[in-house]
Write a protein that binds this DNA or RNA. Structure first.
Lengths: 181, 181
DNA sequence: AAGGTATGGTCTCAATGAGATGGTGTCAAG
DNA sequence: CTTGACACCATCTCATTGAGACCATACCTT
């Protein structure tokens, strides 16, 4: 059932939500909104739409004006594929790659002081993200459209996630050997 | 300063901790302990040690007995590289790829009922991981060696992480439009 | 001795990562 | 009015990783 990789659905979804757009605009929107839970290299956002157009899920149009940018529109097949994907509650496992957790895992092989330095940096970093998500959430118009609600739901997860991690790293910095939650 | 990719340090670290081993044993240990924060394909655990041996960070030895497996030992340079890495508190950002968050992000483009089905599955999944980490933590010998303490620290993060996610998805399943934490 | 199962290893093709490179439109300062 | 500077926009290449097929050996059981 997973006919396409998740990055493909990011492209379909953004175009479905905001209307036809260029790869460059896709890139901006991915950076702003999607990077935290599905990073995509900018070059991919030129490769993927071209491929989806080949497959008939997008339609490619070239500007006649000056820059002759390529604009990608959603087709009916594209929308159908997106809706099939959304309707399937069975998704692959999440994957995390966190170099800081790796260093913490191997901390017993290094110097004891390394842990505190690492944890201090990580705590700062996660506090930063937490503040970022909270401010985005504060900016959200309470207008009750489903777009804003989708956004708010995910920002709530971002906040909970960053809060848990920030508190964890702070507690490691304060007491590396603490065992209780 | 990041001379090698994190996966390289996984190999160096496991050998530093447990002594010389074969790729197959690396594979088992990665699956058991490291997969949650740094997934590595098993084939990589045959490619990487060979490459590290080329670079002089490992020494390769071949069994004379029956199966003639390749056993990789840590060299002095290998240990030095590992320690340099551990001593550097500056690490790249964590990356997460979670298809479920992607579906939640685009939920407004699908049917309202999709959210509840998705959230229910995710809640189950995270509850499962939470139980897993808690049982691993319960099995941990309270013996005060630094190995066990390293393990315990990371399991604590696993527990906090899974608890936050499980609670989030449960609350989404119960009330998709809830806004407060 | 046959077959099953866990152990152990290699290979190939596709996809993505990482980032260098280069062109185009716009606007402000000279 | 023209020349940089800068933001916008796009493509390309090479290395690395992903995904998984495929194969071989040893041991254990019936």
């Amino acid at each position: 059932m997973a006919e396409y990789s998740p990055a493909r659905y990011v492209v379909l979804g953004l175009i479905a939500r905001h209307g036809a757009m260029t790869p460059y605009e896709l890139k901006s929107r991915v950076e702003d909104d999607i990077q935290p839970f599905w990073p995509i290299l900018h070059a991919q956002l030129y490769r993927i739409p071209a491929e989806l157009a080949q497959a008939g899920l997008l339609r490619e149009e070239t500007e006649t004006a000056g820059r002759r940018r390529r604009i990608f529109h959603l087709t009916a097949e594209g929308r159908a594929a997106l809706e099939r994907w959304l309707a399937d509650p069975d998704t692959p496992e999440a994957e995390t790659r966190d170099p800081a957790q790796l260093k913490l895992f191997f901390a017993d092989l290094g110097a004891a002081a390394d842990i505190v330095a690492l944890a201090t940096r990580q705590a700062e970093r996660h506090r930063g993200w937490l503040a970022h998500y909270e401010s985005l959430r504060a900016d959200l118009d309470p207008a009750e459209d489903s777009r804003q609600r989708s956004r708010a739901r995910l920002l709530r997860l971002g906040v909970l996630h960053e809060r848990a991690h920030a508190e964890f790293w702070e507690s490691v910095a304060a007491d590396p050997d603490r065992l209780d939650d």
